[in-house]
Design a protein around this nucleic acid. Sequence first.
DNA 1: TATATATAGATGCAAATGCATCGACATATG
DNA 2: CATATGTCGATGCATTTGCATCTATATATA
Lengths: 142, 142
Amino acid sequence: MNEIDHATEAAWTALMTKSRVLLEAVESSLKSAGYPPLAWYDALLELEKAGPDGLRPFELKDRILLPQYGTSRLLDRMVKAGLVDRRDCSEDGRGQNISISEKGKSVRRAMWPIYERVLSERIGAKLKPKDAAQLATLLSRL
Amino acid sequence: MNEIDHATEAAWTALMTKSRVLLEAVESSLKSAGYPPLAWYDALLELEKAGPDGLRPFELKDRILLPQYGTSRLLDRMVKAGLVDRRDCSEDGRGQNISISEKGKSVRRAMWPIYERVLSERIGAKLKPKDAAQLATLLSRL
DNA sequence: TATATATAGATGCAAATGCATCGACATATG
DNA sequence: CATATGTCGATGCATTTGCATCTATATATA
């Protein structure tokens, strides 16, 4: 079985178009408010959720869907910006533990209202909660 | 009004995650079959739909959601690969007309089965047409 | 017509990404 | 223990992206 149906194609097209447009809206709001890109937010959030021990880079990469080298370099930049701390891992000589710094927490907190506003304007205002939930359910099946 | 509801957040998260995973699946299938990235397919398709006169770069950019400089450079590469023709525009001295070449048509045609297979496996097999249509409808409201 | 403003497309430079590979340490196998 | 294999994370190099700006032509305005 192959030969895709019209609905599949429409779903795919809408998925690509809307995800790009919304992502672009979020990124540009963050940038024009002087904040780092969304990927930084995602990483900060995961690290904050992980608590004081933080995460190993390989764990983080799985959560933020970034390739290994991408994660390595993202962490370079975030360390340099003082948003996260990187220390050698005691249990594994190859590894590291990454944790969010106080500055990292405060940047993440400051980014949220900007981020949230876009989501609220572009999704919340367009779909009733029930419809948004339905959308999430359909997507989760992919 | 602000403060987003849980369903909005779930929809956003699922939208970002799934669109990235699916896009990655398409890109990697194309690449491992020796074909160019999806953006090339999109451009070729738009040019093919536009017929023999082709499109002006500024028209193409609106259809494929690429920034002006991105489109300019994508066209550089596609011209170099012989997939499109670029000629000066007679009605507007600043502009160009871009049209798909025979080689471009054949590459696009060859890419489609690869592309289609991924969509069929990852969307068609997971959502009944009615659900896919519902997904497309919900997305279209964003 | 002369001048100002706007639009089409290209490009230099810096930053980010992708790919392949490396070095270091860990774990399995003889 | 010694060696082979696997995993963690970094990095050199080429490609791509983003930003700002440029040139050229078109259009509007005085």
